[in-house]
Amino acid sequence: MTVITRGVDMVLRLVITIAFAVLVACVVWQVVSRYVLQSPSTVTDEMARFLFIWVALLGGAYTFGQRRHLAIDLLPVITTGILRLLVNVGIIAAIALFAGVVMVYGGLDLVSRTLETQQVSPALRLPMGLVYIAIPFSGLCILYYCLTFLADLFRTGRGPNEQEGTASVGGPLD
């Protein structure tokens, strides 16, 4: 399992880093094309927005795998024994419910419907279904991490919110 996890981590890391770099280039190009080349690009805006959805959703999955999403980690810390186990199972179950039902099941419905009706994006004429695939894909990754977290919980007692080393404090925008 750790081998697969490392593989999933690596793929996500690679995709996120490259997509983010392209994203920066995209917006910089938008400025350059307007001011330096005097012929503004008509597609960078949409390209950047769609790429961004992918970065955000895959980033969300990867970040979850790193146990870095913000949570109020009170109950899992003050409870002990079987109660603590139940709390942690409850947390994983709730996340799996969201990832499985909303992101994978609901997301696939959205993808298939937009592909079926052949809805395209305004500027790039890209099938919107391709943009939305990010949702079920991210959901699948989160489901997988839920599995590993569950295994971790029963094997080592480590809860899904417990990070390795010292946790970073605070919301990202604080």
Binding site: R34, Q38, P40, T42, D45, E46, P122, A123, R125
Partner: peptide, 9 residues
């Protein structure tokens, strides 16, 4: 001239 348009083809 640079003319603002809606992003439709």
């Amino acid at each position: 001239m640079k003319i603002r348009v809606q992003p439709s083809p």
